[in-house]
Nucleic acid binder design. Sequence first.
DNA 1: CTATGGCACGGATT
DNA 2: AATCCGTGCCATAG
Length: 467
Amino acid sequence: MVNQRFVPRQNTSHKALTTAHLAQTMTLLALNNQELLEKIQGELATNPALDLNETNHCPTCQRIIKNNSYCPNCSHSASNEDPVVFVSSREDISSSRNSNDIISDDEFTSQQEDLPTYVLRQIATELEIDERALAAHILSSLDEDGLSTTSNVEVARYHHVSLSKVEKVMELINKSDPIGVGCSSPKAALLTQLDMIDDGQFIDPLTYKVIDIGLDNLSKNQYELLSKKLGVTIQRIEKISSFISSNLNPYPGRAFWGNVRHQENPTLQRYKNPDVIINIQGDPNDPQFIVEVMWPIRGTLKLNPAFKKAMAEAPENKSGEWKEAIEKANLLIKCLIQRNHTLVQLMQKLSVLQRDYILKGDAYIKPITRAKLAKEIGVHESTISRAVSSKSAQLPSGKIVPISIFFDRSLHIRTALKEIIANEEKPLSDTKLVKLLSEYGYDIARRTVAKYRSVEGILPAHLRNSQ
DNA sequence: CTATGGCACGGATT
DNA sequence: AATCCGTGCCATAG
């Protein structure tokens, strides 16, 4: 029985492998970092032939890095050559490496971790024994957005400890990853995150105030109302608003643990961890890009050597099953390499083509289609589509955008439109806007201007108030 | 009468 | 084949 099944598989294995390879690469390509993480964890849990060499340290500077995130310290200091585009993936994958790891059952149990555990693990060392109970209490009350549903007072009373003690623990929790977790409201979460942003980029001091008093208006796009309230220009409010939405996340739990449920909402997408990070290096006038394709797990995936060895003495009835496991593991690793390769290629081309956009912003985007790009790197269009969909990139400015933005056909016109409207003296009607835009070289229909306005959340002329 | 939004069509894109 | 996007036509509001 075993042999009969075994022999024909050998014969077709070459062909079968390549098609399977292709198919799986395609599915993997379509996954973003979050989804890939789940996939790999699932595979690790079910396939004993697969092995993960875990590392908690940043490969370059050896600092402890948090799950899923990049090392804040040194991640961009890797290159010493100076190619136009330097591409590095954070971790590499290798199909075989000698190692004397022993199989233990623990390695194959699920590594899924829920949010409370994840946070607790980060702060555990900083807590006294009695404080852990408090932390556990607080964390168990988190809702699905990562916000706390209990008040500090409540916790303090329950545990008969001073309020300040609870607050101390709470602060620790708030500042762990994802930042803002355990806050009592979206507002509090935003403020905490704002405090923690510390990468030297300019932050409008008014941002605090805007969050504090104007969050409701902000979410309803009532910019002009807010600008009146605070007595500043509407442009300033808009700037602050876009800063908030691209850098802060009112629902900390969703950023890291967001599941399918949230994917329907594209505005929440950009809060996720980026799948690609683009940074600049060297001469600010003529910088090189450092493009990093993120790798969702810490450590190196490989074929479990101990399992391979054990194959030799595999019991008769298990050998087929085991062989299959090894093949599957091998395939997965190969496909992952392929996926990364494709992604790297894609980003390389994209970062060259959209250089101006990456450096100078929305107005400089060039309309390219996936199809054109596909031809250029010689892959099928659908490959590009998969690679692009549901993934995000972090630009040098720190802004996180969906990668599909690189293929936006009208973004440049829309930004021109926004600019015109921002600088208008009196509210301009759509027809006048058409004229002005055509002077910029953008010939579009009146109806289209209206569409763009609504996309950008800009009110019609008669409802806009010039200040 | 002017400005704008809704609907739907056709061509391009995915 | 399905979806997205720009646009024209028409109804409606001001």
